[in-house]
Nucleic acid binder design. Structure first.
Lengths: 357, 357
DNA sequence: TTGAAAGCGGTACCAC
DNA sequence: GTGGTACCGCTTTCAA
């Protein structure tokens, strides 16, 4: 295979000039180029298999139709991946391409990742994190329209719009689901205090109890961690050697892997899920929640939606800002100004049931 | 923030010509540009925060320092992600950037993904799949140096080098581990027959038994699927209501999620892992295998290594092919010509132990 | 030692 | 209706 055909090749084959080729292939042929020339040009383009060189286009137009994505850890997590997938789908549908740079949780690589992307003339920038967290946006990011997904800058003046899950509401609706099943003694296995996700989910949990006029029993909110073993040990603490009346009848976990650990522990103790104890996850982790035995009731994180929403907003900003940029802050849909809250989605499966009588 | 500085800006500030700037900043100043001009140029570049426009560079040099990666499903899987992470790290270390296009398992998007990438003037192409599988490389891929990771083209003439895990050996070493612990009746919970990974692992399994002069009991190889519930039901079939002498003493699973299902089933049946039955996973899936209770002994897929190996080979080919391409097939390290086999790595944790007496 | 100029592949303006 | 040409930002050759 030899090198790709250029507009000049097409022009020669069709016996016209480069400009004619450009006009016709961009739909502005009518009224500028003779009908029969147009036909010859299209034929020539087809036989040569011509597509314009995106690099040359970028240089000329000063816009690359590339969106740069900085991720703190794409790779090993289905989380970031889904956000990026949602964003990428939207971008692709509008003729944009995304390029992802992964800092692998090394914050010192933030600025250089952004700089590399900027050198590539990206039209816009998106910063994605695995877990919900606050950050200081890399300064360079302000040079082009930008958006944050699953993270936020808590300095009010930062001025980069953020798209994050509505964790408080998620926690509230999770607890409500259980409350409606008749549970009154519900334990919460939280991740850690450092990521804002767990505290927000707990806040929602408390709000649900409050709204129902019920108390949260002391000692029922356990900071556990995020992994299977943490769930296992947390559940053992809650269930092992505890008489039925003193046992929580339901355990809601800050993620699905914790819930796996809880079920593992229940099985080992001879407790049936959900007959003896209901278990809820959070995240709806792919290939885990739905295939677990029993399949996990969980609060699905709207990852793809967040990615899509973030990208949609970004591209809108791009098209509104034809040449020079305006300072108008994006209108917030909910939450703090500049923050869009995307609701989580309750997925009821088999790990929760009515309170044991 | 206004727009980025160009070489011309630097030249003006330093009071020299653009060419001088180019020479100096590319290390070819000595012998061409006066020492003091050099200093002024560097200072000017620094104060203007100048970095060259990668787009213009690409157009000029006809090489973009971009490697295009086509993935059949990055997103939701830690698998692809890790391969890409390994590849990306190598690429970045050599000043390349990767851009990933995800076909989301839609094969009709193959060619268009490659075409898009080619329009962007990628210097090389890599095709990555979530699971090991054969494929027909998109024709366009042959236009630039390319490599396959975790997949292969079974048409001998395709001529695209592939980097894949040594699954046969992985299956063999997994069985050997168990055999050495004294197990003689070992069951294998396979995925499905359609992906080549499972059959190869099974082949290795059989080879290990053969080498030990032992038979594989009939009915001990079960095609189960790939998920937690499949592992659960497979294990129930093997263990539930079966007297100890007729029970396998070890179960090796085609992946870690199956192993989770097996442990879940064992717990429910009151069987202890590994005291009553040893369980092995495969893949060493992040956040699952090591945090499982008990932590899973598993055969780690060399994902990052595969990505790194593939990218290393690709970049080598790029640098050996300064202008026009040569047809020399890449030398195979093992396996079929053009295929590099990367060994898996046995990770011994707590889910396997000596055969019960 | 320096600067002018060509060209990478397009697009768009402007004479003809 | 058409083709010539300037320009996007950079590298590289060549003449001064």
């Amino acid at each position: 295979m030899n090198r790709k055909a250029t507009a000049l090749d097409v022009a020669k084959l069709a016996g016209v000039s480069r400009s004619a080729v450009s006009l016709v292939l961009n739909g502005r042929g009518d009224g500028n180029v003779a009908k029969e020339s147009q036909v010859r040009i299209r034929e020539a383009a087809a036989t040569l298999n011509y597509t314009p060189n995106a690099i040359a286009l970028s240089l000329r137009n000063r816009r690359s139709r590339i969106i740069g994505i900085v991720s703190d850890q794409v790779v090993t997590s289905p989380f970031d991946g889904n956000i990026i997938a949602g964003a990428d789908a939207v971008a692709r549908s509008q003729g944009f391409v995304t390029v992802v740079m992964d800092t692998e949780l090394d914050e010192t690589r933030d600025e250089s990742a952004v700089a590399t992307l900027l050198d590539r003339q990206v039209d816009g920038l998106m910063y994605v994190t695995v877990g919900l967290r606050p950050l200081h946006v890399p300064l360079n990011m302000l040079r082009v329209p930008s958006v944050l997904a699953n993270c936020f800058d808590d300095r009010p003046e930062a001025g980069v719009p953020a798209v994050i899950p509505d964790e408080v509401r998620g926690g509230r609706e999770a607890a409500t689901h259980l409350l409606e099943l008749g549970h009154r003694d519900i334990a919460f296995l939280a991740g850690d205090g450092v990521t804002p996700a767990a505290p927000r989910r707990i806040q929602g949990h408390r709000e649900a109890f409050e709204a129902a006029g019920l108390p949260v029993r002391p000692g029922r909110i356990l900071e556990a961690g995020w992994d299977i073993d943490a769930g296992f040990h947390g559940a053992m603490k809650l269930l092992d050697g505890v008489a039925a009346p003193d046992r929580p009848t339901a355990i809601v976990c800050a993620n699905d892997r914790l819930a796996v650990g809880v079920v593992l522990a229940a099985n080992r103790l001879g407790l049936a899920v959900p007959q003896d104890v209901s278990v809820m996850g959070y995240d709806d982790e792919f290939r885990i929640a739905s295939t677990m035995v029993p399949a996990l009731t969980t609060m699905a994180l709207p990852l793809r939606e967040m990615g899509a929403a973030a990208m949609t907003g970004l591209l809108r900003e791009l098209s509104e800002e034809p040449e020079d940029y305006d300072d108008g802050g994006a209108p917030a849909e909910h939450g703090r100004p500049g923050q869009t809250l995307v609701p989580c989605r309750l997925v009821v499966r088999e790990s929760t049931g009515p309170v044991p009588s």
